[in-house]
Design a protein around this nucleic acid. Structure first.
Lengths: 349, 349
DNA sequence: CTGAAAGCGCTTACAG
DNA sequence: CTGAAAGCGCTTACAG
């Protein structure tokens, strides 16, 4: 096996300097056509693949954007990652994806690892980070975008929606529709090494809406371990029924839990929505297919990724002098989707 | 904003050479403790973050492993990616993830882009690639592992299972249970720019099993566009019923389709499994929660990723002289999971 | 246990 | 339109 051909090899075969090869690759328009052809021939003949590592070091531009999500095992975050990746790919950037498993210390070590790759921008999920993470990010001196939330004090920019408002909106809607004993289903509060800050904010919104209406907030079930799932929803509903028989509505932290709860009701002969209404969050595809179809909150997951990508490209295309307007916070909002599980008839869905 | 500190800055502050700083980072044990402490102090003081780009160029080791999957929007592939990533992370490797959207030409351009980052190994999903992709891979001279399949002529190594056997096994099982009019639900055959080779192999297995039993194979519904989904399953079932009322079992290319089909049956008042049995593939979590619970094929998705990671680490730790045993093909098998949707009673599941 | 020299494969900044 | 020189920030391979 011959050693991998370098730009020098291509240059020698084509009878030009490495600078000319470099130009053919980076800005072909400024190279004479005949020269360009010879270089392309040499590249093809040798099977030359440019070395982006050397290119990055020399130009001090890695072509990387880093993105950190809680997990890849949640379609919503996967969609955001795809939206980001697709947007950046068009501009020649490559996405470095990492996941934290909802752990801040994992995020910190990931940020450290990723910054060593010298990304030109970084996207983080949520507005909560360790002190060290924040310092690393600030020192990195690259655009930082926090997504899926609207932090009060963003590190750089933010693109998301208010999880607090989501919780209030859905809970208020349930109250409007006449429900008085509304339960909340979520993950445990203080699992060591796991925390869903955005889910906690939706819970806080639930609390506020109930308090405003002078209704009790004692039906909070925080069950299981780690990220929620269909199983989490089924088990949480079981736990809920053991203690309280008077519940008339359930708001789950995620559609995963909500769908699991609907299925468990079906198994137990509890009628949804007649005996109990159920609502979730995230608008997962399954929610529109189950019977009864699931009321939920729709988030434009792909859009969050795309907008983050666009903002990044915009920021990176500016000269450092232009970069005045710091701390953009973009609220993409959310949409309540009411379906059969809270009493909307099928044709309305 | 001061320019980002380099190893030289750290060396100067600590009163040592850059080599000593480099050693403190790479092999601290061989540096005198007092020196080590001074270097660590300087690193902390400056907030120094090593530059892996320079490190990679100098050592000719990128610390990257590339992985290509069809999509991140499928939990099974996301799990494989996580298994891979977790295994490699422990050894200090970082995963470069890319997705093809089930398009071979996308795979080719991804491989080209990724090889420019000089990964030390690469993992591809499936055994079908363009000629150019194969040449690029061969020329790259790094370990190649194909996963989720058992290619007849692997480029390097392979870790997966036989999708053909999956199709035969499930179809045979349905025949054994007395079904005679068995339909197959899958994506369209020749969507421009989309092809699920592994799904096609499962279909081929379905064909073979039916032929062996002298049963008709005319109930193949290839509907929709692109990757299948719950909606695909619902629509495919509708399309199936329009043409054939005599179907007594359905085998779907994926649980996504199968669950969609179960839900559509429920909507139409068709009893599963009494009127029609339904089986899927992939053992998605939702399948064990719907009513009736879904018969499916379980694949150890995380295990595929972990095993691929381990093989890679093993191959990379060898000297080039040892690397004799090429073309390992590891069959991880699969497991038929029979549940209510094909007539198993609830307690058996 | 530590350091000086050379070099990894490109691109920047000039010069012509 | 093209090229020679220098350098990006590290590590390898020696030397001591």
């Amino acid at each position: 096996m011959p050693p991998k051909p370098t730009m020098r090899d291509v240059a020698r075969i084509a009878g030009v300097s490495t600078m000319t090869v470099s130009r053919v690759l980076a800005q072909p328009a400024i190279v004479a056509e005949a020269t360009r052809d010879r270089v392309h021939e040499a590249i093809a003949k040798l099977g030359y693949v440019p070395d982006m590592i050397a290119s990055s070091l020399s130009s001090q531009k890695s072509g990387f954007i880093a993105a950190i999500v809680p997990t890849l095992n949640n379609i919503n975050f996967a969609q955001t990652a795809e939206g980001l990746s697709d947007t950046l790919k068009m501009a020649g950037f490559q996405l470095l994806i990492g996941y934290t498993n909802y752990q801040l210390d994992e995020e910190e070590s990931l940020v450290k690892t990723m910054l060593a790759r010298r990304p030109e921008g970084i996207v983080l999920t949520g507005g909560h980070h360790t002190k060290a993470t924040q310092q690393l990010l600030l020192a990195a001196d690259i655009p930082v975008i926090e997504i899926w939330d609207l932090p009060k004090q963003p590190i750089g920019h933010a693109i998301g929606f208010s999880n607090l408002d989501v919780g209030m909106a859905m809970t208020s809607r349930l109250i409007e529709r006449g429900h008085r004993r509304i339960a909340f289903l979520g993950p445990p509060e203080s699992e060591p090494g796991f925390r869903d800050f955005r889910g906690d904010e939706r819970l806080e919104g639930y609390h506020r809406a109930l308090k405003q209406a002078d209704l009790p907030t004692d039906l909070v079930i925080r069950h299981g371990s780690g990220p929620v799932s269909f199983t989490h929803g089924a088990e949480s509903l079981t736990a809920l029924l053991e203690h309280r028989k008077d519940v008339d509505a359930v708001f789950a932290v995620s559609d995963l839990s909500a769908v699991g709860a609907v299925m468990e009701c079906q198994r137990r002969g509890i009628k949804v929505p007649d005996d109990v209404a159920i609502a979730g969050f995230g608008d997962f595809e399954i929610g529109s297919h189950i019977i009864p179809s699931l009321t939920t909150v729709h988030i434009d997951c792909i859009g969050i990724g795309e907008r983050a990508g666009q903002l990044l490209l915009d920021l990176l295309s500016r000269t450092s002098i232009e970069s005045a307007d710091e701390h953009q916070v973009i609220d993409l909002g959310f949409e309540l989707v009411e379906r059969e599980s809270t009493g909307m008839s099928a044709q309305q869905t």
